[in-house]
């Protein structure tokens, strides 16, 4: 499966980024093999709504889980609607978070899977 991790740098040895919407990088890793790619978070510099756009980026990348620090309410809605399971990462490297995730040691912070969209 494909998972996304917010990162402070471009390497999997870099530290996990605690902020979601304003994280500079997302690392998209494949848990089946050890392949990964880095994407720039275009929303990081936005004045508002960064979490909403960042959430869409994660969905477009076809990740099914996200490891990060804090997710705001708007981003939470987007990610949950996109069936993304969100896990609270530890203050260690991206790589170490991936292995914690594989060992099921990270805590899930949303109850995905909302099948219903609609905001009002």
């Amino acid at each position: 499966m494909k998972i996304a991790i917010t990162s402070t740098g471009k390497e999997i040895t870099d530290l996990l980024e605690k902020k979601f919407g304003r994280a500079e990088f997302f690392i998209i890793a494949d848990t089946e093999n050890s392949e990964y790619k880095v994407i720039d978070n275009k929303a990081a510099m936005e004045a508002g709504g960064a979490g909403i756009q960042a959430g869409q980026t994660i969905i477009e990348e076809k990740a099914t889980a996200l490891i990060t620090g804090n997710v705001g309410p708007n981003a939470m809605k987007v990610l949950t609607s996109g069936n993304i399971a969100i896990y609270r990462g530890e203050s260690v490297s991206v790589e170490a978070n991936i292995s914690l995730f594989k060992q099921k040691k990270l805590q899930q912070i949303n109850t995905a899977v909302a099948s219903h969209f609609g905001m009002k």
């Binding site: 929303a43 508002g48 909403i52 869409q56 969905i59 987007v78 609607s81 609609g118």
Partner: peptide
């Protein structure tokens, strides 16, 4: 330009608060 809209799986979400 205010990032108040998300389109997920062809469904539109509008965030009134921003």
């Amino acid at each position: 330009q205010f990032n108040a809209i998300a389109v997920i799986n062809k469904k539109v979400m509008i965030f009134d608060n921003i």
